[in-house]
Amino acid sequence: DETGKFLVLSLYDYQEKSPREVTMKKGDILTLLNSTNKDWWKVEVNGRQGFVPAAYVKFL
């Protein structure tokens, strides 16, 4: 199980638009929880879990 094993870097600021999403700032290091959807990845940032656009992050 690779859940929570990968870190990704936020390339852009992102403001959550729904309760299922999370806000991140450019340069944030996020824990990747799920990347099965090619468009939206589930991450943990600042103690919160939610989705961010996959195009806004990259693997470290």
Rank of each mutant, 00 (worst) to 15 (best):
38 K>E: 10
5 K>D: 08
34 N>C: 13
1 D>Q: 14
7 L>D: 03
27 G>R: 02
59 F>R: 11
21 E>D: 05
32 L>P: 00
11 L>E: 04
46 N>S: 09
10 S>I: 07
56 Y>L: 13
12 Y>P: 01
41 W>C: 04
26 K>D: 03
56 Y>T: 07
21 E>W: 05
41 W>N: 00
23 T>L: 03
18 S>N: 12
32 L>K: 00
25 K>A: 08
52 V>W: 02
11 L>N: 03
33 L>K: 04
40 W>D: 00
22 V>P: 01
14 Y>C: 06
12 Y>F: 13
55 A>H: 12
47 G>H: 05
16 E>W: 06
20 R>H: 14
51 F>A: 01
43 V>P: 00
36 T>H: 11
6 F>Q: 14
2 E>N: 14
20 R>G: 15
9 L>I: 15
10 S>K: 04
9 L>T: 08
29 I>L: 09
1 D>P: 14
1 D>E: 14
57 V>R: 00
13 D>M: 04
18 S>F: 06
22 V>A: 05
26 K>Q: 10
56 Y>W: 06
7 L>C: 12
33 L>D: 00
31 T>W: 12
35 S>L: 08
42 K>I: 13
42 K>P: 01
60 L>G: 04
43 V>C: 03
30 L>N: 01
15 Q>E: 15
6 F>H: 13
28 D>Y: 05
39 D>I: 14
31 T>F: 12
56 Y>Q: 06
26 K>W: 04
50 G>L: 03
38 K>W: 07
56 Y>F: 13
47 G>Y: 04
39 D>P: 02
55 A>I: 12
23 T>P: 06
22 V>D: 00
4 G>Q: 14
60 L>S: 06
34 N>E: 14
10 S>V: 15
42 K>T: 06
47 G>A: 04
59 F>M: 15
1 D>K: 11
60 L>R: 03
11 L>S: 03
32 L>C: 09
30 L>P: 01
44 E>H: 04
10 S>C: 15
41 W>D: 00
55 A>Q: 12
46 N>L: 08
8 V>Q: 01
40 W>E: 03
3 T>M: 13
27 G>Q: 02
12 Y>M: 14
33 L>A: 02
3 T>S: 13
19 P>I: 10
59 F>K: 11
47 G>F: 04
11 L>Y: 05
33 L>M: 07
51 F>N: 03
4 G>Y: 13
23 T>D: 03
31 T>P: 08
19 P>N: 10
20 R>K: 12
24 M>H: 01
14 Y>L: 02
23 T>W: 04
7 L>A: 06
48 R>Q: 08
22 V>T: 05
10 S>T: 08
32 L>S: 01
5 K>H: 13
36 T>V: 10
58 K>Y: 10
21 E>M: 06
6 F>P: 12
7 L>I: 09
39 D>V: 14
